[in-house]
Amino acid sequence: MDNTDAYLLNFKGYYLIRSTANTDLLKNLEEFEVRHDDVFIITYPKSGTVWAQQILSLIYFEGHRNRTETVETLDRVPFLEHGVPKMEHQKRPSPRLFASHLPYYLAPKGLKNKKAKILYIYRNPKDVLISYFHFSNMMVMLEAPENIEYFMKKFLDGKGN
């Protein structure tokens, strides 16, 4: 496993943003306890994850009534693989909402054999490529691609920053 890239971490064949990846959490994710009323938003990056996080959290927690709109989206619907500081996923009250960009083979075992709800969102890969390219140019934690051709090669290699 080559983990010399300054921006990306290769974890079991899947690339994550090095600065946000929590390797301790990832190593134990297979055993993560999934509850029957958990809801998982599963997407490829830049495919509408934040929109889905906001919509579902407003539906589940009636944000307009409970003032949850003052709580950050990542605190309402955290990424399963990122491990938000000071947040223990197992202690969150039900129903728990999660987002994830992880591939199926890295998902917790319980997600494969329990009755949790999964919302899978996909987007035209051409649109994802362009959105990811512009996102990478904007984010300091990601490598700024030289041009769209260079970025497309990395994207097709599974290293789309």
Rank of each mutant, 00 (worst) to 15 (best):
M1C: 12
N3A: 05
T4Y: 11
D5E: 09
D5P: 03
D5F: 02
A6S: 14
Y7I: 04
Y7G: 04
L8Q: 04
L8A: 10
K12Q: 15
Y14L: 07
Y15D: 09
Y15E: 10
L16F: 14
L16K: 04
L16M: 13
L16H: 10
I17R: 12
I17A: 10
I17P: 10
S19R: 12
N22W: 04
N22H: 08
T23Y: 11
T23R: 14
D24Y: 12
L26C: 06
N28E: 14
N28S: 15
L29S: 06
E30P: 07
E30Q: 13
E31I: 10
E31Y: 14
F32A: 10
E33F: 10
E33G: 09
V34K: 00
V34G: 03
H36D: 15
D37R: 06
V39R: 02
V39K: 01
F40M: 06
T43P: 02
T43M: 04
Y44L: 15
Y44W: 12
P45D: 07
K46N: 01
G48P: 03
T49F: 00
V50A: 13
W51V: 09
W51A: 04
I55T: 04
I55M: 05
I55N: 00
S57T: 02
H64S: 14
H64W: 12
H64P: 10
N66F: 09
N66W: 02
E69Y: 14
E72W: 07
T73N: 13
L74M: 13
R76W: 13
V77H: 00
P78R: 00
P78A: 02
F79V: 04
L80W: 01
E81F: 00
G83Q: 08
G83K: 06
V84K: 15
P85S: 11
M87Q: 14
M87D: 14
M87H: 11
E88A: 15
Q90S: 15
Q90V: 15
P93I: 03
P95I: 00
P95G: 02
R96W: 04
R96E: 10
R96L: 09
F98Q: 06
F98Y: 13
A99K: 05
H101N: 13
P103L: 08
P103R: 07
Y104A: 08
Y104N: 11
L106I: 09
L106P: 08
P108I: 03
G110Y: 00
L111D: 03
K117Q: 11
I118P: 07
L119C: 12
I121T: 05
Y122K: 10
P125I: 06
K126A: 11
D127C: 08
V128S: 08
I130G: 05
H134M: 09
H134K: 12
H134C: 11
F135I: 11
S136Y: 03
N137T: 10
M138W: 08
V140L: 09
M141I: 14
L142P: 05
E143I: 01
E143T: 09
A144W: 07
P145T: 04
E149A: 06
Y150H: 14
Y150R: 05
F151L: 00
M152G: 01
K153R: 02
K154A: 02
F155D: 03
D157Q: 14
G160Y: 00
G160T: 00
N161P: 03
N161G: 07
N161T: 01
